[in-house]
Design a protein around this nucleic acid. Structure first.
Lengths: 316, 316
DNA sequence: GCCGCTTACGTCAGCCGTAACGATG
DNA sequence: CATCGTTACGGCTGACGTAAGCGGC
């Protein structure tokens, strides 16, 4: 068994079982791929792929298991290579962060500025996506870690490091009737108006969803569900409704035509997490980035959280 | 990077950093090993081993990390090969069980008899050892799983599947004064006599230790601490003291010169676990063995326990 | 001087790429 | 007939074994 063979099989799998395409992606010849995969199958005594005539049409049941293990093996190979780079050239390499819009737009910029100053040789790339998408990016190794404010898909085994808490706020145009309200706002005050908020705001486990559930308002009227805060603010400015957004995303300068109303008492604070695979070798600068982002997360604390033996409790 | 190179490096490490010995063990030439390791080091840009002159004297810090990952990679490679065997020849292969004396002597025999009848082609081997030793055997992949009654070293990440509960009992010779006791036995009754019990009986977390602690007897007099029940019974027969042993290890036929006294009310029941690495591919017959041992552990339940996403809770 | 690792070199397996062939829809 | 995979074959890299060299204890 050769590492190449595993790599080839995986690449075919990732290219919808198209061998030629996989060959192109790996900058090698198509017959080479075919042959090595057949050799691997021969060695194992099983078919990884199911062929119809000469075409590869699906993955066999044992093939799935083989591909899964191959993935882990190749990830570990990458980990070993990372160890090398870490010690030869400890301040160059790459770092890929998957995150949501709010973080990328309102929180990360100053962190990133610090980071690139300290590590100019690190290729930093930030991938933006939905909470689900970023969890998958980390799960597949496409990103080194995710910064997520929303609950993360639970079926992938990721470690979550809590970073900080933040709160939601209400925004409205200056002439909005909600501002005439003389008492502290309640959820019921809000529910009279159409809402403008994040598309995942009413996901299970979200503090916004919980607040409305507690007030027994099952189906608040949502005028617009935005993927990001900029869109959200734009439509609030247009008078489409009352905005519920992360308070930290309010910018007094650019949002002068909006009025911020505190809502700390309406919604429980949310947590921002860093989520990463427990089985990756972290470069020194990765620890530093996390530390810049959340100062309480020192290298020691991160290691402890990542490698801490797992407590379990199975009842018979 | 080649799998061989990782294999070579690991083998050298396992043979006390002796390259020639590793070469012998792998049935290859010594220069080959040297060269491949150097090539690997060159590719990674780090020294895995530290050399003094021409001798390999220790493992570098990054080398430790590399070896650890290599170990996992090679385990996964073995897993892939196991998948192959499972589908080509699903009732032959090998199964290695690490366990303690009591299990091997009093519980496993009838299970093993059933198993070998069902799977005559499986090479079954049972390794006996102390609780710590068997945990290490599983951790290192030397054994497929452990059957343990005692608490297991926590720092290795093993999954524990509860199998059954059992209780301790008291044994004494027929003429022992303890038998004159007219009321139900208490811990205090016991403490008047020297004890004969297992050497790990007063380990932390043991139900025997807890029972004595609860009765405020810190240092019971232990006449003999035995590694296994047979030794224990032998010395109780000699009148050395009062035996505390697993009730299931009492054999009315062979132990006719001993008197069994129930002690269910004195010691909490203990649990027997099967402990295994969560990252191994289990052969069909392995599931069957576990199921023979603990009928409630069906393949589905085992899978669920092994692959269940892990709940975590880290506070800031 | 013996043990243990490295260097040097010849041999050969096996990986890869090109080209021709075959099957499928 | 166009697309996709297999078979056939030659070139070449690189892994391995043998033999010789050399630094430590």
């Amino acid at each position: 068994m050769k590492l190449q063979q595993l790599r080839y099989a995986l690449e075919v799998y990732r290219h919808n079982l198209n061998v030629s395409e996989a060959a192109d992606a790996l900058f090698t010849s198509q017959p080479g791929i075919s042959k090595q995969i057949r050799l691997l199958e021969e060695e194992l005594g099983i078919q990884i792929f199911i062929r119809s005539g000469k075409r590869v049409v699906s993955v066999s049941q044992p093939g799935k298991a083989v591909l899964e293990l191959s993935e882990r093996i190749l990830r570990d190979v990458q980990n070993i290579k990372n160890i090398g780079s870490e010690f030869t050239d400890h301040d160059s390499g790459s770092l890929t962060i998957a995150t949501t819009h709010t973080q990328a737009r309102y929180v990360l910029p100053r962190i990133v500025a610090d980071f690139v100053k300290r590590y100019p040789k690190v290729e930093l790339s930030i991938k933006q996506g939905s909470p689900t998408a970023i969890a998958q990016m980390v799960g597949s190794g496409e990103a080194d870690f995710a910064i997520a404010t929303e609950s993360i898909d639970e079926h992938i085994e990721l470690r979550k490091l809590p970073c900080y808490e933040w709160t939601h706020a209400i925004v409205v145009p200056h002439d909005h009737p909600l501002l005439d309200c003389r008492h502290p706002l309640s959820i019921n005050d809000l529910s009279g108006y159409p809402l403008v908020t994040y598309e995942f705001a009413f996901n299970n486990g979200s503090s916004i969803a919980r607040a409305f559930q507690k007030a027994r308002i099952e189906q608040p009227k949502v005028a617009l569900s935005a993927a990001d805060t900029d869109v959200l603010k734009t439509y609030v400015k247009l008078g489409l409704g009352v905005g519920i957004m992360a308070k930290m995303a309010f910018d007094p300068k650019n949002d002068a035509d909006l009025q911020l109303v505190d809502a700390d008492h309406l919604f429980e604070p949310s947590s921002t997490y860093i989520a990463l695979r427990p089985d990756t070798y972290l470069r020194g600068y990765t620890y530093d980035f996390i530390n810049l982002f959340a100062p309480q997360l020192t290298r020691e604390r991160i290691d402890k959280m990542l490698y801490m033996p797992i407590e379990e409790d199975f009842s018979i």
